[in-house]
Structure formats: structure tokens, C-alpha cells
Amino acid sequence: MWSLLRVPWTRLARSPRSLLTLLPWACIALFFGWTARGRGADDSLATYAALPLPLLAFAAVGAVLGAKSLGHAVSGLRALGASRPAAILVHFLAAVLLSMLLTAVVGGAVAALAHGPADPPLARDVLASAGASALGGAAYAGLFLLGATFGNGAGRSIVLAIDFAFGGSSVGAMLFPRGHVRSLFGGADVAELTARQSSIALPVLAALFLLLAFLRTRRPAR
């Protein structure tokens, strides 16, 4: 398992171009934080949650899987004797961890840049923002991994579009990460759920998406 785990990270390390797609979204988020500096982090974090965060997670999953589907990435390890579940889990782990890490770092940085006098103490605010971003990053990574089981990986873009279109609506907000992430950053709650409940809903959604992705990939396509 450990030797398999190295594979997606090696791919990332040797393909810096795939990481370049992350940069614009990180820069945009930091720019929003910088323009709001001293005025409080709420608005910048709400903007971050709405646009750069999902796109960072999208790019992270793409960097781990390559341009193709989850099944294609898995079959590479399967060809070398890895069991199918192990090959799937390795990619899940890499994509979710990378997505959580990136979104947390950028979320924390935005909170630090935009920190204002009305905000909670800096360290607490940064940690809370990073934690909320990481939860959102995990849920989005799960969603995009599920998307990557459709078509030749094109499903990833489709679920991103669906999240943008319906993730904020009343019904869609329950099923997609967008509404829950917005709630965590001080926006409108999802249905009757409090922000705390949304913080539970996000990992539950992540687990659900990953389970569905696993079930769709556990057998090779005929």
C-alpha cells in the first residue's frame, strides 16, 4: 500500500505543470483577501468559498488523476498487480489530502490577509477558516472524484457546473457542498441546518461521494 501511495505524489512532483493550474485560483483568493485587508475576513472568505475553493479542489483532483477518468488512473496500478480497491483508495487518499491541504492553506491565508478588528483573534480565525476550507475541500474532492467516474473524466466538469448552478438552491444545497461551505463561512444556512450541522454534513457528503465513486469503479468497464 505504501509503495502505491507514492505513485500519485510522484506524478505530482514530476508534473509541475499540473500544479500550475492551481495557481490562478490561489492568487485570486489571496487577491480578494489582500483588497479587504483590515476590514474583516467575512466577505473575502464568502467569495473564496463561492469560486476559488471549488476550483482549487477541481484542479487538485485533476492533478492527481491526470486528464482522464478515475478508472483509467486505477487501471495503471492494477496493471502492475495492485488490487482494484487498493488502487482506488490510493487515488482517493491523494486527491482528498491534496485538496484539503490546498484549500486549508489558501483559506487560512485569506483569513489572515483580510483580518479585521471585529474578527476573532487572528490565530483562532485562521485556524477556523483553514478547518472549514479543509472540510469543503474534502467534500469537493469527493464530488469531483465521483464525477471522474463518468465519461472519460469529463464528468468532473459536469458536476462542477451542476454545483455552480444548483448547489446554492434549497434542494441542491443539501446534496452539494456549496451551500454547506457558504454556511460555514457565515453565509445563509442550508435549510434548517446550523453551521455546526453543516460542518458534519460536509464530511458525510465527502464519504457518500467517495463510496459512490468506489462502487462505480470497483469493476472494470466492459
Partner: peptide, 15 residues
């Protein structure tokens, strides 16, 4: 479909 990012000899070692 060998895993992208690896050198050919690394694939054989990984196997």
C-alpha cells in the same frame, strides 16, 4: 495503462 509519472524501470520495480 501504466501509471503516468513513473519511469519505465520504476513500473517494473513497483510491480
Amino acid at each position: 495503462p501504466l501509471p503516468e509519472g513513473l519511469f519505465a524501470r520504476e513500473c517494473v520495480d513497483l510491480g
